[in-house]
Design a protein around this nucleic acid. Structure first.
Lengths: 341, 341
DNA sequence: TGAATAATTTCAAACGATTGAAATCGCTTT
DNA sequence: AAAGCGATTTCAATCGTTTGAAATTATTCA
């Protein structure tokens, strides 16, 4: 292969000189202006393709005061859901000429604020954020909108605030599916292990659980419900209250998220729970981890993380492109699927 | 809080007008030119800080023909090692004003080529790549260097090619540690389960295993070694040959990577291998997955992924900054640690 | 044929920052 | 008081692209 010459970047000016026309003609030809003669367009397009011309992005960005960078803040990239969702976001963003900065709050509020300020300085064109489980104050995120930069909350979002754009998995529907699945398998006493109460999903999913019970004519019992933040110790506390320190022994379990479900099952097995082998459970995630468990759950809720990510970036790009007004707050839900193993 | 006015971006021009001086004075003051009067510098710096001035990156990038974007190609972001290494890369890059585009080849050669071409078009300032396990032709990556864009291979790299920059974990040393650990625990027959033969690490790690055996005066036996690409079926084949279809029953196992170790252990347990409970093993990764296993290994090799990532980006930025000549090919190794559980 | 009109193309400024060269200022020196 | 000099500031071009306005060329019609 011939040595590529890095010292002659292909610019409009270069094309213009080669074709003996002005830079603006070349620019307009490439942008298909109606005022440009068809033959001229053809000549420009041909040479541009031949020389593999790529418009300089910095120049374009400078011109229209954009960075074409999307900021993302999420709790943890190692989380299976977030990891997969990132893929959906990046693919879509890239296809539309945007780049993505990913940053992890590690579920700490302070870190989230720092990251937000950094992204603000970076002048991202838009922000996609899954808030930390401790975020209650939103000043650090609100400042983006105040500067005209759209923000889309995805997955984790401030439940009480209607004045924001949100995209998330349909926890209600997923939870309903999971609960119904267990009911259909004959269970009557089904426990619910929720995530941190601060995360609004916990409650959406709880409602799905409740509704499935109601629709099946099973009465709800308060002592079949417990919550955990994601720490193993809390999870053990919770699972103890459900399956050990109780006389209402449930036979099945719906869990907010598979990792906590696995922690719970591990504990029950470890203490040699007498009914361990009878317990059936379903959690959210459909994580590959399930393959490594000695006693895996029989089904999972697949949340379609790529789909959630894609919906989020799709909405964000529409907001950036002013196809949707920033004040016209959107709410997008992505349905879950039950996967039987 | 006062409404931020997005319509008045803070530029050099804006500062200059406020201070009644020229744009170039402001610029030079901010860049600490010796020709600028100290008092002037002070005034400029103060106003810049007060108005929270941030130089427009697109303009700077345009000026010095850079994008300040680093491309990354790796097999899979869900992989624990790569995932953590990304964190090291991003942190370091960000601190130095660079952004990062992450792309996954999913260990497919074709995808890798497509991604490389895309990143080339994006005009990244540099590339960090962990090649797919099927990559043998390097044209798609060589074209970067040909255009003056430095490339750093990290973790997975073309073993036979000396003419490239590489950064990777010290597989030899890690493997030595793991093997020695098992020897010290009294094992005499230690098997080695390697990764794909195409990946040069497989051999580095193998050498560490061999050397540890030699140093302990244990003779090497060929039938205690087997390889797997990462598919579960292959792993089972391999583990069968080591622990089932053999009369040389090993009592310990060193594995290229924890996921394959876990697959292997799972299989052995599943078939009810008679000596299962005696087998001790160590794999590379130190993955959190280990906590969910019924019979976890007693130790892991911690590869320090963040460190590897950081060394890679550090080298790349030096190449970009021409602190190191592109032809002066570098090789950086990061040591492993043995973590006892 | 010449004016009016339509079709194309080019000019020139703008986006924001950088930087070598040129200009200006204050001050000393003769 | 004019020249000279250093200290400081400003000018002007540049990076590559876009775009409304102005200029040029081609075409039509009277």
């Amino acid at each position: 292969m011939e040595k590529l010459n890095k010292h002659v970047p292909i610019t409009l000016k270069f094309l213009a000189e080669k074709l003996k026309m002005s830079v603006s003609t070349v620019s307009k030809a490439l942008n298909n202006y109606p005022s440009i003669n068809d033959y001229t367009k053809k000549r420009v397009l041909e040479l541009a393709k031949e020389l593999n011309f790529t418009p300089n992005k910095s120049a374009i960005n400078l011109k229209d005061r954009k960075t074409r960078i999307i900021g993302i803040i999420l709790p943890n990239l190692l989380d299976y859901f977030f990891n997969r969702s990132i893929y959906g976001i990046e693919q879509f963003a890239m296809k539309h000429g945007y780049n993505v900065i990913i940053s992890q709050s590690h579920d700490e509020f302070e870190k989230e604020v720092t990251l937000a300020n950094m992204l603000l300085k970076t002048c991202v064109d838009g922000l996609i954020v899954a808030i930390s489980q401790h975020t209650q104050n939103f000043d650090h995120l609100d400042q983006f909108e105040r500067m005209g930069t759209p923000v889309v909350y995805y997955t984790r979002n401030p439940s009480f605030n209607l004045n924001c754009h949100k995209v998330f998995g349909n926890g209600f529907q997923g939870s309903y599916l999971a609960t119904k699945f267990l009911i259909d398998r004959g269970h009557k006493k089904i426990a619910y292990l929720g995530g941190p109460k601060m995360i609004n999903f916990t409650h959406d999913r709880f409602k799905g659980y409740i509704n499935a019970l109601n629709d099946a004519g099973i009465s709800f019992e308060q002592n079949l419900v417990a919550y955990t933040n994601f720490d193993n110790e809390h999870t053990i506390e919770a699972i103890k209250s459900l399956f050990v320190d109780t006389n209402e022994m449930p036979t099945a379990l719906v869990a907010y998220k598979e990792p906590i479900l696995f922690d719970a099952l591990k504990y029950l097995k470890q203490i040699g729970h007498p009914r361990f082998s009878e317990i059936e459970s379903v959690g959210f995630g459909n994580t590959p981890l399930i393959n490594y468990l000695a006693d895996p759950p029989i089904a999972s809720i697949e949340e379609n993380p790529e789909g959630v990510g894609e919906k989020a970036i799709e909405l964000l790009l529409k907001l950036i492109g002013k196809e949707i007004e920033m004040e016209d707050y959107q709410k997008v839900m992505v349905n879950c699927k039950l996967v039987i193993h």
